[in-house]
Design a protein around this nucleic acid. Structure first.
Length: 731
DNA sequence: GAGCACTGC
């Protein structure tokens, strides 16, 4: 194996401390303990330089590695520098847990009760109030806030954290925020001109008796944090004065961990880039000398070698999925008995999203003395979870990644090589607490050939939901939207087509009344359409339950050593017509036992998942009530109605039985396979529909129920008028 | 005969 030092933090533009300026009076007082802790963070030295840059520039890009403290400190710097008088600071996160735990920590540091000056807002959980000045929120939540407040008047600063992850939502937010920033700058300009005009033309006129600018400056000037009074153009009114609102410029801060800052800067009109030093320990990289044709075997050999030859510290091994984790777990347990005497014990801990919570928790148990933990993980451990005690990382160099072909409208979930930045992220997991080691099971040449970054999610997913959000937030020209990475035109057109077929867009491509209604719900457009149809068919209560259940991926656990038991437990809920009504049975049973967690455990039901389902269910019911829809309308036992609702949203997801027993999709004429997790697996029914079509080892359909073939054309007459050749002949 | 990870009035 050849060795190479992990690339160190570049220092070309590292910010330096600026001359100290006298501090203003209006900040929270720090407890001495926290003050010392904060001052020890690398970023504290750059405090004034950062504040100065943000004051002087509309947008700033901040690059800082893990441990720099940028996410917790920069919002506090702004607050302490008195820059948040006229608006709050929003800090977005891709994940809920990050938003809530950061808020907790910053509230403590800033001496605020959580939910007062420092708070958070995530789905189902709002710990903020109108006086909240620093608010951590998920990026999806900020998108929701834009729908209600298109210019985000409440905020003076929006900090987009973890921008390098390029989630679908951060990418959409980039374009939206750029536009909001431009519009607010324009309003400030207009207002400044009016203000100057009114003061030079008629110094004793009635306007001078109006409220003065809050900072009592003689006139607003360029630069920092001005607040001016203006007409809110989003409100039409006969009495302008009563509708006047303070508008100030929106400052955007983009925070990223990678070195791809130039692309962010270019996109944000050549924004200033600041680099802050991290506090990551060095990680020594070892590459395979020869290409490995069996990375599972290489992973096994390498981990055992680390275990028997290297000093203390746990091992984190990255694999592509559950199946690989299970098989390697078995192999390691077999090998454990053959370890040389006197060697440490080896504890094998699998972790992936579909693993029951109780077993997930095991990776966080402290490793007992004279033992070593080896954690077998998917990319859940790359960003979502930080596991303490890791000193060694073994990287297979692969992950499973979702893809989407807009040309054929099919999703995929396939094993693929990681990008260089993902490989670096994985290696970094070994250097959180001390110097670490990373063993890459591929050659240095292979590494050099990897893509620089993972393809942004927006380039590999169905855009229907994002397009509906854009339309609903007032951005009509979605083809001309300012994407940082523009999706192919065919992908955008396909999303528009799908929304049109659902009735969310009218013939001119404008958001219809139905589309507006659909956008109010935190649901994919197809599900929102199903919910809408439920009003007409009188089964809203059943449809809400089924939709809520489909909001989680793993309802039933299938542990590989208790497969038969789990299948037996599942049969109790099985409905002959498929998964949708099976799910309804599960929800009914769950309600009868009042969500008892030991009942869930005994029936191999995902208890944590079911609690999430109840939250979703409650939320959809609330939105229904707000929209004047009765969430209690029930079809009794006429369950055909429920399935008929579903095909109003999934009319393009139907398939017909062929003479040879296979199923052929009505749209696209492809042979599709019912997934083994479906209650209809192995069954022959005249016609079926499905929620999801995904290519893995085969073209699988998931969430499958049986229907009558003649329901299909009725479900979407507008769609099938032009495509009548696709329909079953009897209609 | 089998699914990477997130998210939302």
């Amino acid at each position: 194996m050849s060795t190479k030092e992990h690339p160190a933090q570049p220092s070309n533009e590292t910010v330096t401390a600026a001359p100290q300026k006298p501090k203003k009076k209006w900040g929270p007082t720090l407890t001495p303990k926290h003050q010392t802790e904060r001052q020890q963070l690398p970023i504290y030295q750059a405090r004034d330089a950062i504040v100065h840059a943000i004051k002087r520039n509309p947008t700033v890009i901040i690059v800082g590695e893990t441990g720099s403290g940028k996410t917790t400190q920069i919002p506090q710097f702004l607050l302490e520098a008195d820059l948040a008088q006229f608006g709050a600071i929003a800090v977005t996160q891709p994940r809920r847990v990050a938003a809530t735990s950061l808020a907790r920590r910053v509230a403590e540091e800033a001496g605020s009760r959580l939910g007062h000056r420092v708070g958070y807002t995530v789905r189902f959980d709002d710990m903020s109030c109108p006086a909240t000045k620093i608010k951590y929120l998920t990026d999806g939540m900020l998108m929701r806030e834009i729908l209600a407040d298109p210019l985000l008047h409440r905020y003076n600063y929006v900090i987009l954290d973890e921008a390098h992850e390029r989630t679908l939502r951060t990418d959409v937010l980039f374009g939206m925020l750029k536009q909001i920033q431009k519009e607010r700058a324009r309003m400030v300009q207009v207002n400044r001109a009016e203000w100057q005009k009114s003061h030079s033309d008629k110094p004793t006129g009635p306007d001078t008796t109006e409220k003065q600018l809050p900072d009592s400056d003689p006139a607003p000037t360029n630069g920092d944090n001005q607040a001016t009074e203006t007409n809110d153009t989003s409100v039409s009114t006969s009495d302008k004065r009563s509708k006047r609102k303070f508008v100030n410029e929106l400052k955007i801060v983009v925070m990223s961990a990678t070195l791809d800052a130039e692309r962010f800067s270019e996109y944000f009109d050549h924004a200033r880039i600041l680099y802050v030093a991290g506090r990551q320990y060095p990680v020594r990289i070892f590459n395979a000398v020869e290409p490995q044709n069996d990375y599972l075997d290489a992973a096994l050999v390498t981990s055992l070698q680390i275990h028997t030859e290297q000093g203390p510290g746990d091992i984190l091994l990255f694999l592509s999925g559950q199946e690989e984790i299970e098989s390697l777990e078995k192999l390691l347990l077999d090998q454990r008995s053959q370890l040389p005497p006197n060697s440490m014990d080896l504890l094998v801990c699998p972790i992936y999203a579909a693993l029951p919570a109780a077993q997930q928790a095991k990776v966080f148990n402290p490793t007992p003395p004279n033992a070593r933990k080896i954690i077998l993980a998917t990319n859940i451990a790359e960003t979502s979870l930080t596991i303490p005690g890791i000193r060694y990382v073994v990287d297979t160099g692969v992950h499973k990644i979702r893809g989407y072909s807009s040309r054929i409208g099919i999703e995929s979930l396939l094993v693929a090589p990681v990008s260089k930045s993902a490989a670096r992220q994985r290696a970094g997991r070994a250097g959180r607490e001390a110097m670490g080691y990373c063993y890459r099971l591929y050659t240095e040449d292979t590494f050099d050939e990897l893509e620089e970054d993972t393809v942004p999610e927006i380039l590999r997913c169905n855009l229907a939901a994002a397009t509906l959000q854009l339309k609903a937030s007032g951005i009509d020209d979605v083809l001309g939207f300012d994407y940082m990475d523009r999706p192919p035109k065919v992908a955008m057109l396909r999303a528009l087509e799908q929304l049109y077929a659902l009735g969310a867009l009218d013939d001119q491509g404008k958001l219809s009344k139905l589309g507006r209604w659909m956008a109010e719900f935190p649901l994919d457009p197809s599900y929102a359409k199903v919910l809408h149809a439920s009003q007409e068919l009188g089964c809203t209560t059943e449809v809400i339950d089924v939709i809520a259940l489909f909001s989680i991926d793993t309802l039933f656990f299938m542990p590989f050593d208790k497969r038969e038991e789990a299948a037996e437990a599942r049969r109790k809920f099985m409905h002959g017509d498929g998964d949708h009504l099976t799910y309804l049975n599960l929800q009914k049973a769950y309600m009868e036992v009042k969500g008892d967690s030991s009942w869930c455990h005994d029936h191999f039901v995902n208890g944590r998942g079911m609690r999430h389902v109840q939250d979703v269910r409650k939320q959809i019911r609330q939105v229904c009530q707000r929209m004047g829809v009765n969430p209690n309308a029930s079809c009794g036992t006429d369950f055909d109605k429920v399935l008929q609702c579903f095909i109003r949203g999934f009319f393009n997801h139907t398939a017909l039985l062929q003479p040879d027993g296979s199923y052929k999709s009505v749209v696209g004429s492809q042979i599709v396979h019912i997934h083994p997790s479906s209650s209809l697996f192995g069954q022959r029914r005249e016609a079926i529909f499905y929620n999801e079509l995904i290519f893995t080892s085969k073209l699988y359909i998931r969430g499958v129920s049986a229907i009558q073939a003649n329901w299909i054309p009725e479900a979407a007459p507008r769609y099938f008028q032009q495509k009548s050749h696709m329909l079953p002949s009897q209609s």
